[in-house]
Amino acid sequence: MMEGRVAIVTGAGGGIGRDIALAMAREGAKVVVNDLGASMTGEGADAGPAQQVVNEIRAFGGEAVANTDSVADPAAANRIVMTALESFGRLDAVVNNAGILRDRFFHKMSVEEFDAVIKVHLYGSYFVSRAAATHFKEQNSGSFVHMTSTSGLIGNYGQANYAAAKLGIMALSKSIALDMQKFGVRSNCIAPFAWSRMIGSIPTETEAEKARVDRMKQMTPAKIAPLAVALASDAGAMATGQVFAVRNNEIFLMSQPRPIRSVHRGEGWTPESVANHALPALQGSFYALDRSSDVFTWDPV
């Protein structure tokens, strides 16, 4: 499905990004494997993870090159795109997967913790997408696949920085889809569920907890890759501006904000009439303070 195509996958030295890069290559894509090699919190750098994935791709006859630039710097993001153009002569797909975590309850979160996560996730997706956009426009084709999260789409504890970035990515993707549709460029989001070191601290003290974790471990990063490849390929041409989620063997199309109820007052509103009329009338349609796990309540299938 990706024969003759060139793809960039950021944060591809491990986890979801690695499996997407491998799947792209198996479908015929030439792949730029980007990874800074930093820790989960974004600290340190190591060229090894990106090169290891390149070696895996080459071992089964695929073509790939490593890149260790940071997505959080615009000049470095341009170098990621130039790596594709200089190595393979073109660029057809960008998967914005790179990310870090700095979880902290909001009232304890520092400016640095908020800024670092926004820089990698939201700015990183913008910088790499913007660097690729000019080339996509010139060739009248291209596909962006961005990683969002149900932490942003729905909510979660202790992740104000991550959630803000991930919901921002949804809006960024929709804007790219609107602005670039006339150039044949598509942009979509995936909210992935996958077992990783980030959720590896779930307790397993009882047999029920152990069974639940065993079921969750079925949600391997490889489960995300088929949708990413399909959206990046020409076969996914019908999809743009959409938000999907993948949970083990399930693929969801996620809703996007739309009006659900309204109230009208011919003479206009005062603070008192808003409090006495508008809010009580709308209250029945208010959303609960749900977390992702409150919405996705069943075990993965």
Rank of each mutant, 00 (worst) to 15 (best):
E3F: 05
A7Q: 07
I8E: 07
V9H: 00
G14E: 10
G14S: 14
G17N: 00
D19T: 05
A23G: 06
M24L: 10
K30C: 13
V32W: 03
V33D: 13
G37M: 12
S39E: 12
M40C: 06
D46M: 09
A47Y: 06
G48M: 04
P49D: 04
Q51T: 09
N55Q: 10
R58D: 08
G61D: 00
G61R: 06
G62K: 06
E63W: 06
D69F: 11
S70I: 08
A72P: 02
R79Y: 00
V81P: 11
A84G: 03
L85P: 06
E86Y: 01
R90T: 15
L101C: 08
F105W: 01
E113C: 03
A116G: 01
K119Q: 15
V120M: 05
H121D: 01
G124W: 03
G124P: 03
F127Y: 11
V128P: 02
A132S: 11
A133R: 02
T134Q: 14
F136R: 10
Q139R: 13
V145E: 08
V145N: 02
M147T: 13
M147E: 09
T148L: 01
T148I: 08
A160N: 02
N161W: 08
K166H: 04
G168Q: 04
G168Y: 01
M170E: 13
M170R: 12
K174E: 15
I176W: 10
I176Q: 13
I176L: 15
D179T: 01
Q181S: 15
K182A: 15
F183Y: 12
R186F: 04
R186V: 08
N188A: 07
N188L: 03
C189S: 14
F193T: 02
F193P: 01
A194Q: 13
R197S: 13
S201K: 05
A208Y: 03
E209C: 09
A211D: 11
Q218P: 00
M219A: 13
P226W: 04
L227N: 10
V229W: 07
G236P: 05
A237G: 06
A239R: 11
G241C: 09
G241N: 10
Q242Y: 05
V243L: 15
A245H: 00
N248A: 14
N249F: 06
F252W: 11
L253Y: 05
M254K: 05
P257E: 10
R261L: 06
G266L: 04
E267D: 12
W269H: 07
P271D: 14
E272A: 14
E272L: 10
S273H: 01
V274L: 14
A275V: 02
H277I: 13
H277Q: 10
L279W: 13
Q283P: 01
Y287Q: 13
R291L: 13
R291D: 09
S292C: 08
D294F: 04
F296D: 09
T297C: 08
